[in-house]
Write a protein that binds this DNA or RNA. Structure first.
Lengths: 353, 353
DNA sequence: TTGTACGCGTTATCAG
DNA sequence: CTGATAACGCGTACAA
């Protein structure tokens, strides 16, 4: 015998910080009168164990309240049965954004069907990004779903460079190797919205574009350009916003000043569209009679704007669920291609266009 | 002789092939021409190592892109340098609630100052709760901050029983052992708000209370009762809501029907207060002239209601930061007492009272 | 069906 | 300062 199975626990006088009793599989085996191997088999649900032994072990587990050590199991198995949802550089704005609730719920919903546990990682500044990458590379998780947003985010490249299986939500920018990702067809959605604006007779269609360092911002602008060029219209009436309400308001102001003749605007997000709606109203123009507006995202708030906002649906939750499914496939080795999965856009017409 | 340190030894059937991309400390040590122990010392920043060895090891680490295995380190060290923020049973409503953004930002901000990595765990149904508890008990994390909300959440009891170091945000209900927690003085805040309503001459002060299975709902109602009783007023004008806008609207409707003479109402959350504001206006009463209103939380939206809402500040972010600090103290063994930390309420008067 | 004996990758201990 | 070597707790070929 090299070592006592039951170390005497010191009864400290401090009851404030109860020491964490660590009961190991060894004690379970001893209590059940079997070997550690048999106990382990019971735990992992192996059929190669007698009913008698199984019962004894289960009884011991319950009585001792045994919980397998994650560290030891991860080390032995080489995996952690955990995947990360990474949200790079969120500020308070982005955290209260419906986008995140949808992403979280969509992914966790899909993962709940497997034995994978989801953990959420949020990285703040560049400092935090470093830590996230180390955390991921250290093998804490088997894979990651990354809500990719900003081009200058070194996290994308670093994760791809490591061999960690990962799936992006939103086409990642600034990466030079093929990557699994799921996205919606932002370009096509923007094009459809713009074509609708043109179709209802708008003569001068402007756009409020999203940030140039996000693929969604880029793609939606490009879709607007597609429609404008196809219709033989100039594509110069562009203002940029940062996806916030105030940004939308400001961009609308610029647009109305620079192009007083505009009678329609495609806005790259509902949040900005809400701000634009307010500004347009403030300037004494009516929506949709004087200016038609179509937003993007179909967030809940777009139903309660006045008037209710026409928009393009962004199936965030479904996208996250699909990303989770892809990641599970990658981990299972049953994901053949790296072709991105694109969700089709869906125009939701309410009363602003 | 169990096994050579360098896999390059031609002797022995080394069936243990290097797994994909996994470079171990052995290879680092070999490349640097030192032992594993020395390599480990360099990694952990021990001063007991020559400058020469240190340089060689660092060079090897960089060239091989070595990252220590989390599982192995956790096993050897007995800790993971990771803490969890647990959000039990969130639905989409609660996820887009500003409360969570504040909690996440506050905690991660404090943890960034330490070497602890924060992971967010969200549990959906009761099924998910089971998994969360197992995850916590398995030693994946060294401690947890739990945003405690619902009384019937078995998670509270189970985590406390497991002896995992943890700190609650919001007084946990339904637990029978002393627990570390941080909260604001909801009762006192509600009392102050109600006293203010009485002080400005309101004759009939009602309240819209929060859910009875949340400590904040209970405490805020009790604070309202305190003020009413102290003023010799009846405390029967009570309606309940579930902290949502629609719930507030509905509760206001009930209140106005049951107590047509009411001229003031203390609402247990800004979200509900916003709904109440709308309902009160719909019924042709003016705020604050006919009905004075004070909410609770001081969320961003309370500044943009019409008219701007008077409220009680809820320092969510600071509370979360404090909770993180307490947890770090507990983990360091420097947290002497289990006395809760209570933040003082702060009345924010705008124009509804 | 059960037990033995490693191996997982790292840190801690204790001689040199 | 450095290097063997024993833990850390669990899974699992390989025997029995």
């Amino acid at each position: 015998m090299t070592r006592a199975d039951t170390p005497a626990s010191p009864q400290g006088p401090t009851k404030v910080l109860p020491r964490r009793g660590k009961v190991t599989i060894r004690q379970v085996a001893a209590a059940a009168g079997v070997s550690r191997a048999t106990a382990s088999r019971v735990i992992s649900g192996s059929p190669l164990v007698s009913e008698q032994s199984r019962h004894a072990v289960e009884k011991a587990i319950a009585e001792l309240e045994f919980v397998p050590s994650a560290a030891a199991r991860n080390l032995a198995l080489g995996r952690s049965s955990t995947v990360a949802l990474v949200l790079p550089e969120p500020d308070s704005r982005v955290l209260s954004d419906p986008f995140f609730a949808g992403t979280i719920l969509g992914l966790s919903g899909r993962l709940d069907m497997s034995d994978m546990q989801m953990v959420l990682l949020i990285a703040r500044s560049g400092q935090g990004t470093q830590r996230i990458v180390r955390f991921l590379e250290a093998g804490h998780v088997d894979g990651a779903v990354i809500a990719s947003h900003h081009r200058d985010d070194s996290l994308n490249r670093r994760v791809l460079h490591s061999a960690l299986p990962c799936v992006f939500i939103g086409r990642p920018l600034g990466v030079d190797v093929p990557a699994h990702y799921v996205d919606m067809d932002n370009r096509q959605g923007a094009r459809q919205a713009t074509e609708h604006l043109i179709g209802i007779g708008s003569q001068r269609v402007a756009t409020i574009a999203g940030p140039s360092d996000m693929s969604s911002g880029l793609d939606r602008l490009e879709g607007w350009r597609d429609a404008m060029r196809a219709a033989g219209r100039p594509d110069d009436a562009v203002a940029y916003g940062n996806y916030t309400l105030e940004g939308g308001r400001q961009a609308a102001r610029e647009l109305l000043a620079a192009h007083p003749d505009l009678d329609a605007v495609f806005v790259a997000s509902d949040m900005m569209a809400t701000g634009a709606l307010a500004e347009i109203g403030n300037q004494g123009r009516r929506v949709p009679d004087d200016v038609a507006v179509i937003g993007f995202d179909n967030f809940e708030l777009s139903q309660s704007t006045v008037p209710p906002l026409s928009t393009v649906d962004h199936p965030v939750s479904q996208m996250a669920a699909k990303a989770g499914e892809m990641l599970l496939d990658v981990l299972a080795g049953t994901q053949p291609s790296v072709d991105p999965v694109l969700f089709a856009p869906r125009l939701v017409l309410r009363t602003t266009a």
